[in-house]
């Protein structure tokens, strides 16, 4: 075979391997979803789960139907949606900022959501909405406000990666300071509620939250995937991407808004969940490289895998009182982050 022929053969082999990685990640997620559904304080063997599933929410076994359809299934689906949203957001953010340590936390989006929720809990009732609507709405609004601040800086000073990272760090400290102020002002009972929200837990999941987070992910996903080639081109550095005809500034701003919407949709119901948006992109890149046609879906799958695994671990470690997933991801995330830092190669790509 000629050298060009060999090159094309190598490319085809690489694509097949990546396709296999996507399928393997999807299958692993299915297994973990099943494990999450059968795990819980009240237990539920696979056979019983199967019966309760096919019997539907109005099945004869009222207890099993309630456990599966009202508690476990919304929590598991929420874990998948939140994990996928954070995984996608993390990869997009790391790519547009050319920074392997970027995540929705780096730009302060999660801190903003936490502040919004804390304010809502502290002064609840001013919007005449029930708390379960008001708190996520406040978290969502503050996340968009944080994105708006970073976006405004990007419009004023240009959308270079350094400017965005520094603006994000400023936003992070700003909202963390406001969050501390709210906590300082809160009474012990309210403070307890705020701290519980900030833990990041799937216990707040319901079918409503599944529908809202699912809708946001479904709306954002096509726009993110449409940019797969643009994100891949951006990995060659700003100057090279621009010379391939890409409007780098416009793409960065567009991606920033998508990340804000995905993060807001993910954290507004569950609270702040750390490290998923940081680790999932690294796992995806290790598995399929930086062809974003594959890296994006794998980052979403990895994010979902991490969060569902954290959910299973939370239930197994403490069967009586489920440990919030935010705590599990934070504990497990630190050694993962250290591994990333140690194995990180020095980069010169801009």
């Amino acid at each position: 075979m000629t050298e060009p022929g060999l090159a094309i053969g190598g490319y085809a082999r690489r694509i097949r391997l990546r396709g296999t990685a996507v399928i393997a990640a999807a299958l692993a997620l299915c297994v973990l979803v099943l494990a999450d559904l059968v795990t819980g304080p009240s237990g539920m063997p696979l056979a019983e789960l199967n019966r309760a599933f096919w019997a539907g929410p109005g099945g004869e076994d009222r207890a099993a139907a309630a456990i599966l359809w009202q508690i476990r299934m919304p929590q598991t689906i929420m874990a998948v949606l939140v994990g996928a949203s954070l995984g996608l957001s993390g990869l997009v953010m790391q790519t547009i900022l050319a920074n392997p340590l970027a995540s929705p936390f780096t730009l302060g989006f999660s801190a903003a959501a936490g502040f919004g929720a804390a304010v809502s809990i502290l002064v609840g009732g001013i919007t005449f909405l029930p708390p379960w609507v008001e708190t996520p709405l406040a978290a969502f609004a503050m996340t968009l406000a944080a994105a708006g601040l970073v976006y405004a800086v990007a419009r004023l000073k240009g959308s270079q990666a350094e400017v965005l990272v520094l603006a994000g760090i400023a936003v992070l400290f700003f909202f963390q300071a406001l969050q501390s102020l709210v906590q300082f002002m809160a009474s012990p009972e309210v403070l307890q509620q705020i701290v519980f929200w900030l833990f990041g837990s799937l216990l707040k999941a319901s079918w409503t939250s599944v529908q809202v987070s699912g809708a946001i992910l479904a709306i954002c996903l096509p726009f993110v995937m449409r940019d797969a080639w643009n994100l891949t081109a951006l990995r060659l550095g700003d100057a090279n991407a621009a010379s391939l005809g890409l409007n780098v500034d416009r793409m960065r701003r567009r991606s920033l808004l998508l990340v804000a919407a995905l993060t807001a949709g993910a954290v507004c119901f569950t609270g702040t969940i750390g490290f998923v948006g940081l680790i999932a992109p690294h796992a995806a890149r290790s598995a399929v490289g930086e062809d974003h046609r594959f890296a994006l879906p794998v980052a979403a799958l990895m994010g979902a895998l991490i969060l569902v695994a954290a959910s299973v671990a939370g239930k197994l470690i403490s069967p009586g009182a489920v440990i919030p997933v935010g705590v599990i991801t934070a504990i497990a995330g630190i050694p993962m982050l250290m591994t990333v830092l140690i194995t990180l190669k020095p980069t010169g790509a801009r």
Partner: peptide, 30 residues
């Protein structure tokens, strides 16, 4: 039109996890 201008900036290290062929294919990005 900008599409008809092929600009190659000064050399710098690229750290993308792409194969050489994948990188060249990006020349047809649009």
């Amino acid at each position: 039109p900008p599409r008809q201008i092929g600009y190659l900036p000064q050399a710098f290290q690229v750290s993308a996890r792409l194969s050489v062929l994948e990188c060249v294919v990006l020349g047809r990005r649009e």
